[in-house]
């Protein structure tokens, strides 16, 4: 009887390994540097999580389809620069669109979402219609996007320079705060991220589109036989991902304040790592919104924590790599036992 109980605890721990990991990480950092769990540093971690979460939610969909998306970071870069260019202050000297007035904020948002949707559609189209692996498709399209971004930054007298001097209303809209906790303001984009996460949860769990996505990721042939619109759903998943990257670009532009061709570079790698840590498996057909959120949060805590306790910045990369691998080993063990 006693033995059975310990096995259950073991199983409980391994099934929830990511949370165990999360608690351990916080404990270790907190012990080394007790000021880690201050309100300002917690709000900082939550803000950083909120900034990268929508993108991870987009990539998660493509991973559920047994794919991936290497173009996400570049798409963020492109949409960030477009948003920034449309919302530069009129009195800023180096304004890219020198002749035109500052656009309303929602015009820039819609432009960013639209660009994301179009490129997402393109990705999905090649994946679904020609059965090319998303790795290859997005490897190619990210180059195309980078080229377009570089050309975009050459418009007018900009000559490839960093875009800054953003309109204060824009900065206020994204990073401003309607609520403070203990004197630390919570930026608005945290609330946006909460809303997006709820919408994504509904899409994944409560719509035919979401069910079809999981079914296709699990077995595309079976899905086709069951009368699921396979091509349409795959394209849809990539469009949805593109929209989320576009949104991330819109937020990043204001969050960073100055944007260049390197904005968004390698963002997709962190997002993919977060998904995998959160149990969105490359096997396809498995993953939960909850997992993605926890994955992004865990990764952020580790990134911020390592900086916080003053680990050498070069050495940080090694630790990050090791932690991602370890988390995945623990996660995979869970599946192996089940077989």
């Amino acid at each position: 009887m006693e033995k059975k109980k310990t096995i259950n605890i073991k199983k409980l721990l391994s099934d929830n390994s990511i949370y165990v990991f999360l608690v351990l990480a916080i404990l270790v950092i907190e012990i080394i540097e007790p000021s880690f769990l201050s309100i300002s540093s917690i709000v900082n971690i939550i803000s950083l999580t909120a900034a990268s979460l929508p993108m991870a939610l987009g990539i998660a969909g493509t991973i559920i389809l047994t794919g991936t998306d290497l173009s996400a970071g570049r798409m963020v870069g492109l949409t960030a620069c477009v948003s920034a260019a449309l919302l530069q202050s009129t009195d800023y000297i180096g304004k890219l669109f020198a002749g035109i007035p500052t656009m309303p904020i929602f015009v820039a948002l819609i432009a960013a979402l639209l660009i994301g949707a179009i490129f997402g559609c393109l990705n999905g189209f090649f994946v679904a219609k020609f059965s090319i692996h998303p790795f290859i498709v997005t490897l190619s399209t990210q180059l195309v996007m980078y080229g377009i971004l570089l050309m975009f930054l050459m418009i007018g007298n900009n000559n490839g320079q960093t875009l800054s001097g953003l309109a204060p209303e824009y900065m206020q809209f994204v990073s401003g705060s309607i609520l403070s906790i203990g004197g630390t303001p919570i930026p608005n984009y945290v609330w946006f991220a909460v809303i997006i996460t709820v919408i994504m949860w509904v899409i994944w769990n409560k719509t035919a589109f979401g069910k079809n996505m999981f079914a296709i990721g699990s077995n595309a042939e079976s899905a086709r036989v069951a009368g699921v619109r396979v091509t349409g759903t795959i394209i849809g998943v990539f469009i949805l991902a593109g929209i989320l990257y576009g949104y991330t670009g819109f937020i990043e532009a204001a969050r960073i304040g100055s944007n260049s061709a390197s904005t968004g570079l390698n963002y997709e790698l962190d997002a993919i790592a977060a998904c995998v840590i959160g149990g969105v498996s490359f096997v396809g057909g498995t993953g939960k919104i909850k997992g993605v959120v926890t994955g992004v949060l865990l990764l952020r805590i580790i990134f911020v924590g390592l900086m916080y306790i003053g680990v050498d910045s070069n050495f940080q990369y090694i630790i990050k790599g090791a932690i991602i691998l370890t988390a995945c080993i623990i996660d995979m063990k869970k599946y192996r036992v089940r077989k």
């Binding site: 079914a215 699990s218 077995n219 079976s222 899905a223 096997v283 396809g284 057909g285």
Partner: peptide, 9 residues
Amino acid sequence: LKNGIFRNQ
């Protein structure tokens, strides 16, 4: 297995 079930669903 090939085109009937969704194994992990």
